[in-house]
Design a protein around this nucleic acid. Structure first.
Length: 491
RNA sequence: CGGGGCGUAGCGUAGCCCGGUUAUCGCGCCACAUUUGGGAUGUGGAGGUCGCAAGUUCGAAUCUUGCCGCCCCGACCA
């Protein structure tokens, strides 16, 4: 009816947009490239944020907040860093408006020009390292383990809801360490936190790996990443964790006295995930009926729809439902009883399917008589009639089953879409056919990587961690190679 | 920045070529009634700077010019 969803097979991008808009996650805004995150979408982000925040704290991090604005001169202190971000920075040049003397509303007051322009943060390494300079003097001040939840702005040419917007929400961890070994350990620890979150909460299987020089974060020594595979066979970088070496410490002159009273530059990491994860979540699990959300981060896990004629039936159903709700809440299950009379049951069924609520329970007079309820799973669209007795526990188990099923399904798909190839012909065939990750030998040079990208639009997503070493030859140049890397077309 | 598309009610649209009653239809919204096991039905009703500005004309949603905005596809990117 009013909420037709484009089929994935007809137009994958349109399908994705339909889910975001009609599922009530976000809207386009009056500002080009920026979206409004609606309550349901934000609830999803909050659910993800809560889990991650807990994990950060469990690994010893604390939250803090740094300014939105960064003096222009800060950004240029690390050469590779500014190189990477310069093209997409929003710049504040004035601090005041005034009435247009020609009567055209307000204009920028030319008198109010800033002496030094401010950059709206595209990422906060520079402002943070400028601050750390004052916080770190001794090895006793280390490690410094800070995370920030914030918005950042990257003025992208072309945007897509959640996947790439001019402003987005994220978290960025910035840590300082006394030794390189400790910083590297932090980098991999946080990569594992992300991977664990993706797999156990989002039910999204990921490949852990390290980026090639081409794809590395601007200013990093090494960029570790988790890569996920979408249903259209394209890859999505779902999170990154960077070992920054001493680059930022040197740029901002952050030194500490070690135990031998010698000055040393500190070692740094930074790591982040963004609202982009929501885009990935949608593209991994959802179907042509709408969103499919994994129970562990679904804003709402269970919806109960009563089916009744008249107040009398309603009262009988209410009594049973309230008992069930009490049970579910006791078990930590989030539940909504939609007994509004505005829409009929069929409408509600369709609506909650669109929104991806994992479990729907329908209870009518007929069920009350039989002491049962109809329980419908969103993930595989099956329905079964279950006794009301002990239903709460059964639902809790079912949610866990759904969580597992979503992960297994996504993992099977992902594993079936990692294809080993040994020639460039096969490589192109796979990319244009079944798509997904392509595991192939590469000669290790940036030039070859660039060339392959030019020819096929595929990039090296990562060199997987613990990658088996094997002799081979580069698919493009035929030069010797010691290991396979994962290529894919990516978002 | 290149290519394409679009701007008419909250949303989706017709009308535009070929200017002429009160701007079309559907969804949604409001009221009432009947309904309620897969997106209900009827009756009545509210809602419009036709993106903005200038021009042509007796008359502009419609023609002309300029401007603005958004979306999609590319290059760039999390």
């Amino acid at each position: 009816m009013s909420k037709e969803i484009t089929a994935r097979s007809a137009d994958y991008s349109q399908w994705y947009n339909d889910l975001v808009l009609k599922g009530g996650l976000a809207d386009y805004s009056a500002v080009k490239g920026c979206m409004v995150i609606k309550p349901y979408g934000f609830a999803l982000w909050e659910a993800m944020r809560d889990v991650l925040d807990r994990k950060f704290k469990e690994t010893g991090h604390q939250n803090a907040y740094f300014p939105l604005f960064i003096p222009k001169s800060f950004l240029s202190k690390e050469a590779a860093h500014i190189e990477g971000f310069a093209k997409e920075c929003a710049v504040v040049t004035h601090y005041r408006l005034k009435n247009d003397p020609n009567g055209g509303g307000v204009v920028v007051d030319p008198e109010a020009k800033l002496e030094e322009e401010l950059i709206v943060r595209p990422t906060s390494e520079t402002i943070i390292w400028n601050t750390y300079k004052d916080w770190i003097q001794s090895y006793r001040d280390l490690p410094l383990l800070i995370n920030q939840w914030a918005n950042v702005v990257r003025w992208e040419m072309r945007t897509r809801l959640f996947l790439r917007t001019a402003e987005f929400l994220w978290q960025e961890g910035h840590t300082a360490h006394a030794t390189a070994e400790e910083a590297v350990a932090e980098t991999t620890q946080m990569l594992n936190v992300y991977a664990d979150f993706a797999e156990h909460y989002m039910a999204v299987p990921v490949v852990r790996g390290v980026k090639t020089a081409n794809e590395r974060f601007a200013g990093a020594v090494d960029t570790y990443c988790i890569e996920a595979l979408m249903q259209d066979g394209k890859a999505l970088q779902a999170g990154t964790s960077h070992f920054l070496g001493q680059n930022f410490a040197k740029a901002f002159n952050v030194q500490f006295s070690n135990k031998e009273n010698k000055l040393e530059y500190v070692w740094a990491t930074s790591w982040g995930v963004s609202t982009r994860l929501i885009g990935g979540l949608i593209m991994v699990h959802s179907d042509d009926q709408g969103l499919v959300l994994p129970p562990r981060i679904a804003p709402l896990q269970v919806v109960i729809v009563p089916i009744f004629k008249g107040e009398e039936q309603k009262a009988t159903i209410d009594a049973k439902v309230h008992a069930l709700i009490a049970d579910l809440k006791k078990l930590g299950v989030s539940v909504k009883y939609d007994d509004s009379d505005n829409n009929r049951p069929g409408w509600k069924f369709a609506e909650y399917e669109m929104k991806g609520v994992p479990v729907r329970i329908a209870i009518g007079a007929r069920d009350i008589e039989n002491g049962v309820a109809e329980v419908a799973r969103r993930d595989n669209k099956t329905k079964e009639t279950l006794p009301l007795e002990g239903l709460g526990q059964r639902i809790q188990d079912l949610l866990e089953e759904i969580q597992q099923n979503l992960f297994n399904k996504a993992k099977t798909y992902r594993d079936e879409h990692i294809t080993r190839v040994d020639t460039f012909e096969e490589f192109k065939q796979v990319l244009d056919g079944k798509a997904g990750f392509v595991s192939a030998h590469w000669d290790g040079t940036s030039e070859t990587e660039e060339k392959i990208k030019e020819l096929t639009k595929a990039t090296i997503r990562c060199i997987p961690l613990n990658n088996p070493q094997e002799e081979g030859v580069c698919i493009l140049t035929g030069k010797p190679s010691k290991e396979r890397v994962l290529f894919a077309r990516a978002y």
